[in-house]
Computed example of a mutant assay.
Amino acid sequence: MRSWAICFGAGILAGVANARCAPSTCGGSPKCIAAIGADAAVGEAFCSSWLSLAPATTTVTELETATSTLVSIETALTTLTLTTATITKTGGVITTVYQKRAIASSSADPADAIVSTCSSNDARISSACSCFLSTATTSTVTVFATAVSTAVVEAASTVVLTVTSNVVATASAAPPAVTIPANPVVNYNFENYLTTGNILPWTDTSATSGGRVQVIDGVNPCTSGGAYCAGGRVVVRTYPPTTGGGYVGIKETFNAKPSTTYAVSFMYRCLNFDSSTRIDVRYAGVLVGTSNSCNAGAQFIRSTGIRFTTDATGRGELEIRFYNPSNAPYLYFYADDFQALAV
């Protein structure tokens, strides 16, 4: 049986004020209180119903915000931001009101016994119930939520929220980083060909545009007087078609810095050329520059003044087209050291 020598100084149920419940002033007949406390679950259900008490309500409004940010021009990171949730309470403090448990049909109704012991006196029953229910406990609400942030780089994190009188959200996100090299053009000197036998990630257009593309070793790609030489002696050799005034090209798709302007340069040499011979540079399918400074010497020429600007993703295709507008029968090109540097 519950001891009623102790009463708490703060009401737990909405609408019950029991600051007066000291040992000497707790209202109600001792016999009546004893009848209610004979079975705590039955007594709580009986008194909740008798006093027409409803549980206090708690409304939890959960607010989540996920943002994605590019950090610096070299590294793309994802930042996850969560805001604190808010709580609105109505009806006073939180409580748990127990329902009356089922009574076997062969037993007497405990409520009848309580009413009988309390002499069917409404005021006496109400006073005893107020003191009896003063020891009810508050409830705790727990909320679980998941937030996912998505960007150029993706990362996921799980947020667990525990709600009592307020909610605080915490999150730990450590997304991977993507580093963009100074020159995003891969295999720009074609030296990988010596070990792989191909020029990947470069591809050529010969299957659709005609002409031929080869990679050879042993060429010395230097400018006049050796003022500048490429990093190796492996170069690409292209033969544009000799009919139709067409071209043959090499192209590569790569990732650069988003929304950034790049300067394109490369070394080239023309053989058996004429005044109409030229090299066009396209980025994302758009013509961004032309080189046509072929000369009769053995030295290479370095192209300049060609630029393109990436979009918000930084991903795009660079294509170099070698043209033979006059259908010269023996025209071919050497090219090497392709670069794209941010300006």
Rank of each mutant, 00 (worst) to 15 (best):
M1Q: 06
W4Q: 09
W4H: 10
F8H: 12
G15A: 03
V16S: 10
A17M: 08
R20F: 09
A22L: 12
A22W: 11
P23F: 12
S29L: 01
S29R: 06
P30M: 01
A35H: 06
A38N: 08
A38S: 08
A38T: 08
A38P: 02
E44V: 02
F46D: 02
C47R: 03
S49L: 05
L53H: 00
V60K: 01
T75G: 09
L77K: 15
T79R: 14
T81E: 15
K89C: 07
K89T: 08
G91P: 03
T95Q: 09
V97Q: 12
Q99K: 12
K100G: 09
S105N: 07
D112F: 10
D112Y: 10
A113I: 13
T140D: 11
T140F: 02
F144V: 11
A147I: 05
A155N: 13
A156F: 07
T158P: 06
T162W: 06
S165P: 09
V167S: 09
A171S: 13
A174W: 02
A177G: 13
G197Y: 05
T205K: 01
R212P: 06
V213C: 08
V215I: 15
D217Q: 11
N220Y: 07
T242G: 10
G245Y: 11
Y247H: 14
Y262F: 00
F266Y: 15
F273W: 15
S276E: 15
T277L: 14
R282M: 07
G285T: 05
L287A: 00
V288Y: 04
R302Q: 08
T304Q: 00
T310Q: 05
A312T: 11
T313K: 07
G314N: 01
G316A: 01
G316I: 07
E317N: 03
E317Q: 02
I320L: 11
P329G: 12
L331A: 12
Q339G: 01
A342R: 02
